[in-house]
Amino acid sequence: MLKKLYHQFASPKTYVVLVDKIYPIIFYTSLITYVFALIWGLAFAPSDYMQGNSYRIIYMHVPASFLSESLYIAMAIAAAIFLIWKVKLAAYIIKAIAPIGALVAFLALVSGSIWGIPTWGTWWQWDARVTSTLILFIMYLGLISLHSSFTNYEKADKFISVLVLIGSVNIPIIKKSVDWWNTLHQPASITLTDKPSIDPSMLYPLFLSMLGFSGLIICLVILSSKVQIFNREGNKTWVKYHV
């Protein structure tokens, strides 16, 4: 039963049908959540006693940096699925995520630089976290350029998944860079194991904004993966009936 479900979901056709059904639900709930979190965070949350109002960019910076790493982990999982079970859908999803990951990493870098001006006094610092996020951004660009340099998509899929899997050794380093080095960037305020070091009045909108932003990015991934599927499977009959 479960195996059948798994195999069905692995076919692009079932994926597209399912995704078309749940897409509006995810989109509208996450949009409402994010807008609600932004209003709460920007207008109602108290201002920081050190940073004043400038900390409010956290409601955009933290979700973006969180997702820039999570999207890479998602790609690594998809790459493992593709290499082990040869599920084509996983390869389409890797290709779909790569530009979005680059976009999100770029957003994290830009919002971090903007935040750096009032708090650190400089918009760029060769600090461990900043540098490693920049490396992550370059890794996404490398993946895109590797895939686009092959006209044979089946080869390109294998190469990109090998590279994604090997590149994932950098993820723990990016994640832990603020703990291992003494740097300007502050350590993570929210962890799974400890009590958050951030006040609840700021934490709840932050949590909601992370949820909403993730939902919006997932919607983007869904749209992008549909583009990939229609591109690669365009000559199949189900696509003609579906579109």
Binding site: I138, G142, L143, L163, I173
Partner: peptide, 13 residues
Amino acid sequence: ALGALITMPLLFP
């Protein structure tokens, strides 16, 4: 050039 681009990030550790 492509090989160098995709290898350099792996060497940072």
